[in-house]
């Protein structure tokens, strides 16, 4: 195992974040605050409680998930796509490292950033609403697995993308709608029955529901089902990554 290489990639990717702190940290935090102001205070004050949780508090887990999912994909996909675009990818490709070591370096860095960002947003939320977390360890577990799984997804997108447009297709056309419709800002119980059934096919629902359970002990689907779903999703992603690597992984001619 080439520990030094994994460490070098990890540090290099983390340094990228701190080179542009405004873009990597401040901007997601600011957009989260805007969501709070708009949904939590302005609209939320006219909303009833959901599952006996005030609306402004209810949306906190969904907001964190939204940011964590989008940022994981954005960071990891950019992290591998940018070197491909610049041509600097020649170096890791010519280095004595295995594809999986590359994954650990790139995906590890993206995961770390997302977890940190999730915790920052949680901290910011405390400034706006009173929150209690019933199951903090489960909350951290969900935060970790979600960050990791979606960073892995971002890595796959970055490897496959041939231009910046393709890099953005999956996040904007698939992820954003799934996360918004997966109950980030509402409980699916408020939907008509037919839409509730349809939403059960949305993988984001399981994540958000499970994460919310860790906070409030209430959920749209059982928490075990949520864990099973995210576990299954991670295994699927691992399978895709292995397949990409075994087929020359689109990086070597």
């Amino acid at each position: 195992m080439n520990i030094y290489a994994m460490r070098a990639i990890y540090h290099f990717e983390m340094a990228r974040t701190f080179r542009a702190p405004l873009q990597s940290i401040a901007s997601p935090v600011i957009s989260t605050i805007l969501y709070f102001v708009v949904f939590g205070s302005a609209i939320g004050s006219r909303m009833t409680m959901i599952d006996s949780v005030p609306y402004g508090v209810f949306i906190v887990p969904g907001l964190i998930m939204l940011t964590v999912i989008m940022q994981s994909v954005a960071n990891a996909s950019f992290g591998i796509y940018f070197p491909k675009y610049l041509g600097t990818i020649y170096e890791p490709l010519s280095a004595p490292i295995s594809p999986w070591e590359m994954v650990i370096g790139y995906v590890g860095a993206a995961t770390t950033k997302s977890i940190a960002l999730g915790l920052i947003i949680l901290a910011v939320s405390f400034l706006f609403v009173p929150i209690t977390i019933l199951h903090p360890f489960v909350m951290l577990l969900f935060l970790f697995i979600t960050s990791f799984a979606f960073s892995l997804l971002g890595f796959i997108i970055g490897i496959c993308a041939r231009n910046f447009e393709q890099l953005n297709i999956v996040p904007t056309l698939i992820l954003t709608p799934l996360v918004f419709l997966g109950g980030s800002f509402y409980s699916i119980k408020i939907l008509p029955p037919i839409w509730q059934t349809i939403t059960l096919f949305n993988p984001a629902l399981y994540l958000i529901s499970g994460f919310r359970w860790a906070f409030f002990g209430v959920s749209d689907v059982p928490v075990t089902l949520s864990l099973a779903a995210i576990g299954f999703f991670s295994i699927l992603l691992f399978g895709i990554v292995s397949w990409i690597f075994s087929s020359g992984y689109r990086l070597r001619n």
């Binding site: 030094y4 290489a5 070098a8 990639i9 540090h11 340094a15 070197p83 170096e91 890791p92 280095a95």
Partner: peptide, 18 residues
């Protein structure tokens, strides 16, 4: 990498090669 420093990028190389 345009925004990396000379030292940063050279250190990265050494690490990559184990």
């Amino acid at each position: 990498e345009p925004f990396e420093t000379v030292l940063g990028t050279v250190n990265l190389s050494r690490g990559l090669f184990g």
